[in-house]
Design a protein around this nucleic acid. Structure first.
Ligand code: FES
Ligand code: FES
Lengths: 151, 151
DNA sequence: ATTTTAAAAGATATTAAGGTCTTAATATAT
DNA sequence: ATATATTAAGACCTTAATATCTTTTAAAAT
């Protein structure tokens, strides 16, 4: 059997999403949060998540400050980003364009065997990631409604 | 950006599904079909698809005969298999058990941020792969309603 | 029986994803 | 100014997925 623990998003992208939700909840302009805390809070390898945070920072999805008391934080503008914005930054737009059966592109002209059934799933998937902004997660996480790592 | 051209299934699994649909359509007890044809008909690397066919054969999802006029074919029992049976044989049951955010398992007790929204998507995804049997594809492909490779 | 054909099996190679480590840059506190 | 903390950047390593090549086995046709 060909092991495979991932569906939908790359590991990097999973980490990115969880890290962004984590920072959204814990940080503010004054209270920044460091890579170590992010790694712990999301069960991600420290150096790996560091790289990912750099990516996100370069792509302006999050702010960072170096030095003592430095770290990552989000301003109100950053909080308006959705999961989809993170996915696009890390995994690109494959979720929007790819055929689930590996054809060059997902299209109505050259549909794969499951195209028309997958279409609906894809619509919901995109709705799922575009619907939720980080600001919304910030509230929800406080009430303990979900988890970023295993207990 | 972390390239990623695959969502849902491994490449092996994509090839497997397309190969199985191809053989379902082209073969019969008397008319077997060889690896070369399968590779051409599905745009898959010949030696790689050969390995995959061996897997599927070992797992009794398909029949094979060696030697002159040998090849792969399906009997009426094989045709009753669904896409889900192929996916389980190649990718295991990760599609059933995995959390989309990479938590150890998908569960209501320790739900990830998008668990409750993903739940619905997952249900449809599973319905999609369990719903269609190879026999059904056999009919549909004949009418040119879908494609196994790019034109 | 021998030859031919094609799958089965296994060894090896390549690529991409995932992960770690080291050094440089920079902001802050002292 | 200097020391310190922390991100940024880049080099490097490891593993798993993907792909190829070679040899063996078995069935069928002759
Ligand atoms: S063509 Fe395959 S999912 Fe649309
Ligand atoms: S817990 Fe993440 S999808 Fe169910």
């Amino acid at each position: 059997m060909h092991q495979r623990n991932v569906i939908m998003f790359s590991k990097s992208c999973e980490y990115a999403i969880k890290a962004m939700i984590f920072v959204a909840q814990k940080s503010s302009e004054e209270q920044r949060i460091g890579v170590k805390e992010i790694a712990k809070g999301t069960d991600a390898p420290e150096h790996f998540i560091a790289k990912i945070m750099q990516d996100l920072s370069r792509r302006k999805l999050i702010h960072s400050i170096k030095g003592p008391n430095g770290g990552f934080y989000m301003d109100s503008h950053d909080l308006k980003n959705s999961i989809a914005d993170i996915v696009k930054a890390i995994d690109g737009d494959s979720i929007y364009t790819d055929c689930v059966m590996g054809l060059k592109a997902c299209s109505e002209k050259n549909p794969c065997p499951v195209h028309f059934e997958y279409k609906e799933i894809k619509k919901n998937l995109i709705k799922m990631i575009e619907h939720n902004t980080l600001a919304e997660f910030k509230e929800k996480l406080e009430s303990g409604k979900f988890f970023l790592k295993n207990k």
